[in-house]
Write a protein that binds this DNA or RNA. Structure first.
Lengths: 166, 166
DNA sequence: GAAAAACCATTGGTTGCCCCAATGAACTCC
DNA sequence: GGAGTTCATTGGGGCAACCAATGGTTTTTC
């Protein structure tokens, strides 16, 4: 394998020992690879990760406000505006004023949205298969379990919920 | 406990089922949390993640060129210039022309650099402890092993080494 | 019922990370 | 000594996460 000049993350096998074993470091690397793989796959449908996540949330939650969506997928209200606008422009969701609460937009998936979602889900799944190709199914489940517990430490006691990154 | 408005990643517990179990998704979340934790910790020493990684690599590799460093930690040559400049400005590394190859800069850690590195390493380690607080030591090792294999699939056969993003 | 507080969608702007292309100097190989 | 390559540097560009402010709307409180 010719080690070219390009330093594209993916081929940075050695890193300093002290760092290479740090979960935060590995997480960053793995996430970067996952992101690249998924983004690449989704791009064939003109979708991006956040768009897919939001569309998925909409499909699952039914008519829902943007603020609620933001809480669900964990993105900023500002970014949500962009995503929903894109989705709407593509005819994947409808954004209608909620008659019960005129502040809100009722976002709902369209037939076309469901169609696209079905495809992008398959694409995303396949990308994830490739991402975890080196793992056995059992190991993959293990990884998912471990990560899930890392992602939501809000349950534990000790110093959690510290300063939200000033 | 009050669920405020802010959607800062950390408190996005539920996400759509279909997505929540996707390694790529979890990886992104976990990485974001790890990044926040570590960055926050390092900030107390005025350091950033990349700076720490590079400094660590320099300390471990001895006098080394920037290009080599870039390959080691996996960042772009352009960004390396900035990082090394910052490090140099802070007196943490020295950047001297390599007499054996006048194209190269021999980057080397300074005494002060070692001192800072010792502190930032401790800081980084602690942040990682907090990141993995929900895991037992054995589980943490497990996670590291799993992630390591995800990060470098370059060994396996199947479609690996695919298009690097495009 | 009116003021106060909270919430929603939107606009505006910032930061950090990752990536690519081009340039001039220096080294290597033939 | 000329071609090809590597090095540091400069100049861009894209994407994700985040924070502050505003006008309109709902709920809360007195």
């Amino acid at each position: 394998m010719d080690r070219r000049y390009r330093g594209t993350m993916a081929d940075a096998p050695y890193a300093p020992r002290r760092i290479r074993v740090l979960p935060s470091w590995l997480l960053g690397r793995a996430a970067a690879r996952g992101h690249r793989l998924v983004a690449e796959a989704l791009a064939t449908e003109g979708m991006r990760m956040m768009h897919h996540a939001v569309l998925s949330a909409v499909a699952e939650t039914g008519p829902v406000s943007q603020a609620e969506l933001g809480r669900i997928v964990g993105i900023d209200p500002k970014d949500m505006v962009t995503v929903v606008t894109d989705l709407q422009r593509g005819g994947l969701v409808t954004r209608t004023p909620d008659p019960r609460d005129r502040r809100k937009n009722a976002v709902e998936v369209s037939a076309e949205g469901r169609r696209v979602l079905r495809r992008t889900q398959k694409l995303g799944d396949r990308a994830n298969d490739e991402l975890t190709a080196a793992l056995t199914p059992a190991e993959r489940e293990q990884l998912i379990g471990l990560l899930t517990r890392i992602v939501r430490p809000a349950d534990g006691a000790d110093g959690a919920g510290k300063g939200a990154g000033g």
